[in-house]
């Protein structure tokens, strides 16, 4: 993201507002999701062709969630900066 002159927010605030809530939401989603589904079982029924153990399952799951929430937050932030 490039700062624009009409942007009243400090750059760090914009990034903070994107990174932190998306991180938090991803953490909560990961917790709920993996409390219900065992990543080892998911790996067994998935068509990815590689063995994924639980630790990797949790890690990949968390970052997958984070990519989603981060993209959404980033997009919202871009839409909210107004047009010119």
């Amino acid at each position: 993201m490039h700062r624009r002159d009409d942007d009243p927010l400090p750059e760090i605030q914009r990034w903070g507002a994107v990174v932190w809530p998306s991180f938090f939401a991803a953490g909560v989603a990961t917790m709920f999701f993996f409390a219900m589904f065992d990543p080892a079982e998911l790996s067994r029924i998935a068509w990815i062709g590689v063995e994924v153990d639980r630790q990797w399952g949790y890690t990949i799951g968390f970052f997958l969630f984070w990519v989603c929430t981060f993209s959404a937050s980033l997009f919202t932030s871009l839409l909210l900066r107004g047009r010119r």
Binding site: P10, I12, Q13, G16, A17, V19, W20, P21
Partner: peptide, 9 residues
């Protein structure tokens, strides 16, 4: 303090 000012809900 920037975390508190800008990032904390």
């Amino acid at each position: 303090e920037q975390v508190c000012k800008y990032m904390c809900p």
